[in-house]
Design a protein around this nucleic acid. Structure first.
Lengths: 211, 211
DNA sequence: GGTGTTCTGTATCGACCGTTCCATTAGCTG
DNA sequence: CAGCTAATGGAACGGTCGATACAGAACACC
């Protein structure tokens, strides 16, 4: 009976409430990326977002719920940016530009790894829900790469026996591994070498002319 | 001559003390690998090792000191096993056996990533000392691979323009990235695909006959 | 404008965790 | 045996963190 009046657009959230919720979520995502999920207390998030316990627990059931939302937020961020970077890639040169963009991004956030990779490493043995969400995120990320590779193949710039699915998996693994080693050693070259090795797999046996 | 009667050389540790210390360290290493450093309390370690607070703080100054020791322990474990696996590798077939061994090891500890990679991801933004130690560990791990690749090259089974250092970096990055993705998706194939891509880089342009 | 819901401030609780202290036992040294 | 240091047992403390309770303020809607 009361359900139809006060609730705004499905969720029982008013405009101000949605803003506050988003502020908490953004602060939590940034802090948990910068210093890890375990080292980020709700007090840290409240301080960074200028909120109190009442607001925190008004919008999130508990810390686990907040973490889960942070995970989906980071996945969405990553997939959105990757969709932009990969949407129109249909040539080896285009894929090379994607590689260069990843290197640039990694250099800007020097010292910190992949937002998804960090969460994955920390949460995969703690939260089955987070693990599944991240697995799904990486899977669709892979499909974005596969789609680009298929377009490249359609343009005749890929070897006949090339497997887009495996090439995409190799690119993703090289990216994650390269980012991890670059983070530890503080030498971004690790990422470049790793990505170049995976890129060489893509261009291997490709028709010489087409690019 | 007078010092090392019963107390273990240099350190003021008796035989029994060294055993207890090692017991604590082993339990801490296992727990921190299984559930992460942050989620492992000293109480967990004490319970798993059958010790109390007095022994814990008798052998380790604080938790950070214990973590640092765990890091060096895991690095030693990894380098020791890698030295065995890579010591006599001097052919592409030998390197392939190393690849297969890594895949087998990864399947045995299913669900969990690389012992060094996990520590690296969690500690690199928390402890500069741990980060530096892990960076050094990965560096010597790379040299083990480089040495093997140089031996392969000496046997004439590598392309003339092949760069062992870069190939080793690509192998390591593929291993770490493949392990991370295999851990998240619970699909060990990610590691195989990633390693095969890096291996293809090694064999690319190699003389056909020599193996 | 009145009313009920959403939102926010504050005070606080209980559990856990890292850490310390003190007392006692075991074991080597002379 | 005497005497010293290492090794152990156990209780307890201070602080932090996650979580709750309850108040009042802001706001949407009729």
């Amino acid at each position: 009976m009361a359900a139809d009046r006060e609730t705004v657009r499905g969720t029982g959230l008013t405009k101000r409430g949605a803003v506050t919720r988003e502020r908490i979520l953004a602060a939590a995502a940034d802090l948990m990326y910068a210093q890890g999920v375990g080292k980020t207390s709700l007090g840290d998030v409240m301080a960074a977002s200028g909120t109190g316990p009442s607001q925190m627990y008004h919008y999130f059931a508990d810390k686990d719920a907040l973490v889960d939302e942070v995970v989906t937020t980071q996945i969405q961020r990553m997939l959105t940016s990757q969709r932009v970077l990969l949407a129109r890639v249909d040539s080896l040169n285009g894929l090379q530009r994607w590689r260069d963009a990843e290197v640039v991004v990694a250099r800007t956030r020097r010292g910190q790894g992949c937002p998804l990779g960090s969460l994955a490493s920390e949460l995969s043995c703690q939260s089955e829900q987070a693990r599944a969400a991240l697995a799904a995120g990486f899977a669709t990320w892979q499909t974005l790469l596969v789609d680009a590779l298929v377009r490249i193949r359609a343009a005749g710039a890929l070897a006949a026996d090339a497997d887009p699915s495996m090439l995409a998996a190799g690119l993703l693994a090289a990216l994650e591994g390269g980012l991890l080693l670059a983070q530890i050693t503080r030498e971004p070259e690790w990422l470049e070498i790793a990505l170049d090795a995976a890129m060489a797999q893509v261009t291997a046996g490709a028709p010489a002319v087409a690019q």
